[in-house]
Amino acid sequence: MKYALPLFALLLSSCAANVTEPARVSGAAPQSAQEALRPYYARLDVKLPKAPANPALSDDTVITRFAFGSCVNENRDMKFWDVIAAQKPQAFLLIGDNVYGDTRPTNGADIPTLTASYKKLNSRVEFDRFRRSIPMMTAWDDHDYGANDAGGAFAFKEWAENVYETYWGSSDEVKSRPGVYESRIVGPQGRRVQFIMLDGRFFRSDLATMPYRDPGPTLGWYIPNMDPNATILGKAQWDWLAQELEKPADVRFIISSTQVITDAHNFEGWTNFPKERERLYALLGQKGVNNAIFLTGDRHSGGFYKTTAPGLSKPLWDFTSSSLNFAFGKGDGSDREPDPRRTGGFWGIPNFGQIDIDWAAKKVTMTLRKDDGSVIETQVANAID
């Protein structure tokens, strides 16, 4: 039987329905919405969708080209999948808003719009063809997490995690812990690529917002959250990241669904949590990580950003690619969002990111491409140790 109770009714029923559970026998009340919902989810009888089969990326692969992108609306044109495949990437990273399955006012705690969006994606032949031919790694953002701009307080996040891990066939390691972060090192010694896929949703503290005003701000409502206890990654993920950065790798790609470097807007990003970004930069400096490049999405526009960080001898790059098929602009939107850290334009047209690694020259070429494969902009980073 499939349940679809409103949350307020669900919380009441879950407190009374199963008196044999230890928390109920002891009289202890649930300490969070997530805890209150667990008995409900345990009773759900739902067959969750799964993505088409995906070829494995061999651990000894010498990576010379991969691609990445974000923001796929499952109802829109999908020609970009064939265009990316024509570039012959050895892997593809889909780094958030992989479907638009947000909650609706009528949704139950089983988030039916999320599973419906994944089923719709499965019906798209271009995605099916791509998925069966190019190895993929994934991260999530808000629209496939389950609610716009949601973080750790999202009541349905444990079910959203189950849907995500089932659909994408997450590893046993990912399934064994809260959140969906993971890391992988590919390639032989001297040509090792590390992919670090962060989870900026499951543990994230609440966003701080401006007071209401009319008309509203054109570049978002959020302001920096300066609470010293506020977090993006949460303690367990921070500890894990520190361990991952100690592993030997020749170049590292740190994937964040939201932008890391820029302060030019008040939408979501690491700019919302300055102390967490300082901690990230400090960790890279402490570990001597001079070979990291951030890959980010979310913004429905693409561009390149560069900054310096204490303890690092090389600049940090943030390569934003968004959206694959759901862009909001018609070209370069730099005038709307000026940013001294951005090295070129801010392209509100459908795009994907391509990374080419020249191991002999120790150079990483980063290319932002249109959905027809043509080049928008290119930057080169000397990021290989």
Rank of each mutant, 00 (worst) to 15 (best):
M1T: 05
M1K: 02
A4Q: 14
A4V: 09
L5W: 03
P6M: 01
L11A: 04
L11R: 06
L11N: 04
L12F: 15
L12D: 15
E21T: 01
P22Y: 05
P22K: 11
P30S: 11
A33R: 12
L37G: 01
R38A: 05
Y40N: 01
Y40A: 14
Y41R: 10
R43C: 15
V46N: 01
L48G: 03
P52F: 00
A53M: 09
A56P: 01
D59P: 12
D60S: 12
I63M: 15
R65C: 04
G69I: 10
C71V: 02
N75M: 11
D82L: 05
V83K: 12
A85G: 12
P89T: 02
P89G: 03
F92I: 01
L93C: 02
L94Q: 13
G96E: 10
N98L: 07
Y100W: 09
G101T: 11
D102R: 06
P105R: 07
N107S: 15
N107D: 15
A109K: 09
D110Q: 03
Y118S: 07
K119S: 12
R124Y: 12
P135C: 07
A139R: 08
D142N: 05
H143K: 03
Y145Q: 02
G146I: 11
G152P: 06
G152Y: 13
A155M: 07
A155Q: 11
E161L: 12
E161H: 13
Y164L: 11
T166G: 08
D172R: 15
E173H: 10
V174R: 08
K175R: 14
P178Q: 11
P188M: 03
F195R: 00
I196E: 00
D199K: 12
R201L: 10
F202S: 08
L207Y: 15
Y212F: 14
R213N: 10
D214S: 10
D214G: 01
G220I: 05
W221Q: 09
W221A: 12
M226C: 11
D227F: 07
A230P: 06
A236Q: 13
D239Q: 14
P248E: 00
F253Q: 03
S256F: 09
S257T: 13
V260A: 08
N266W: 05
E268G: 11
W270C: 05
W270Q: 03
R279G: 03
L280H: 09
A282E: 04
V289S: 06
N291E: 02
N291F: 01
L295G: 04
L295R: 06
L295Q: 05
G303M: 02
T308D: 13
A309H: 06
P310Q: 02
S313Q: 05
P315D: 00
L316M: 07
S321K: 09
S323V: 00
L324D: 04
K330A: 10
K330Q: 14
D332I: 08
D332M: 09
G333N: 14
S334R: 15
R336A: 13
E337V: 14
E337T: 14
P340H: 06
R341G: 09
R342E: 13
R342K: 12
T343W: 01
W347E: 01
P350T: 04
Q354L: 15
T365A: 02
T367L: 01
D371V: 01
V375S: 00
I376M: 02
E377S: 09
A383W: 13
A383T: 13
A383D: 02
I384T: 06
I384H: 04
I384M: 10
I384N: 03
